[in-house]
């Protein structure tokens, strides 16, 4: 990891504990948990089949649901309903959601977009724009330049920029990432960076590596939480193997991209 990754982590984040109170599944039956607490620095993976309610779960957190969403869940911050400014004033909002959408429709250059975001947050520009772009460029293999138009960035570049923005500019203590694996970005670098910065991260994911790198897994089905799993080191051996496999696949991907024919013989699994 590059040195610049450590700089976002050195800023002090204001920490919050988020509590999720149960709602109901699609049949209206109550969810089988009493309260879920997300503590500062937690990494959590939300898993489950397509349509099982994963995105709805993080959306509840994003909007600080108060029983007013389809799921009926309630979100507390430090044990109480959040103050209105957390929801209404983005500069006070401790949560940043990076959506599944890999396109950003802002009709601005990267530089203008970040500068306007800094202005919205009443932050001095300083070197934040360069810092954000540098961090984003560690998450993606296709370099982002400050003069590029936001709308012409690739899916991976857009995601990388929005994650770097959430860390450097929004400075959000809680980041929600919806299917980070859909875009071409270095997942392990993103996860390491967010962990180092003390951010609470919730991944909606179908990716084994992202799931295994998280401290806890929330399993969804039929619109409700089915189970909360805490492997607590039990999966360490599998994680090592999956990390190796992932590195192997990444190296194959790079070789294929560069136009190689992969002619070596390998043992059947």
């Amino acid at each position: 990891m590059g040195k610049s990754l450590s700089s976002p982590g050195q800023r002090n984040l204001i920490m919050y504990t988020i509590t999720i109170l149960p709602g109901h599944d699609r049949n209206g039956d109550p969810e089988p948990f009493e309260a879920l607490h997300l503590r500062p620095g937690d990494t959590i993976a939300i898993v489950g089949p397509t349509g099982s309610g994963k995105s709805a779960f993080i959306n509840d957190i994003e909007v600080f649901a108060q029983g007013d969403t389809v799921t009926g869940r309630q979100i507390l911050v430090d044990g109480a309903p959040p103050p209105e400014r957390f929801v209404r004033d983005p500069s006070c909002k401790p949560v940043a959601l990076i959506t599944q959408t890999t396109k950003c429709l802002a009709d601005l250059t990267v530089q203008e977009f970040l500068s306007m975001h800094l202005r919205a947050r009443k932050i001095e520009e300083g070197d934040r724009i360069a810092e954000t772009i540098n961090l984003a460029n560690q998450f993606t293999g296709e370099p982002i330049r400050s003069g590029t138009r936001i709308s012409s960035l690739s899916g991976g570049q857009t995601r990388s920029l929005l994650i770097a923005d959430a860390v450097v500019i929004s400075h959000a203590p809680i980041i929600l990432l919806d299917e980070i694996e859909n875009a071409g970005i270095f997942r392990d670098r993103v996860i390491t960076c967010l962990k180092e910065s003390g951010t609470t991260v919730i991944f909606v994911t179908h990716d084994p590596l992202v799931s295994l790198l998280s401290d806890r897994r929330i399993v969804m089905g039929n619109g409700s939480v089915r189970a909360v799993l805490e492997p607590d080191g039990a999966e360490a051996s599998i994680l090592r193997q999956v990390t190796e496999m992932d590195n192997y696949l990444s190296s194959l991907r790079e070789r294929l991209r560069s136009g190689e024919i992969l002619s070596e013989q390998v043992a059947a699994i």
Binding site: S91, L97, I98, T99, C104, L108, F113, L162, D165, A166
Partner: peptide
């Protein structure tokens, strides 16, 4: 707003402001 990420929301909001 469900289709845009936090930074986009804030930039759009700044235009309204």
């Amino acid at each position: 707003v469900d289709l845009v990420s936090q930074a986009e929301k804030e930039v759009f909001r700044e235009g309204i402001r």
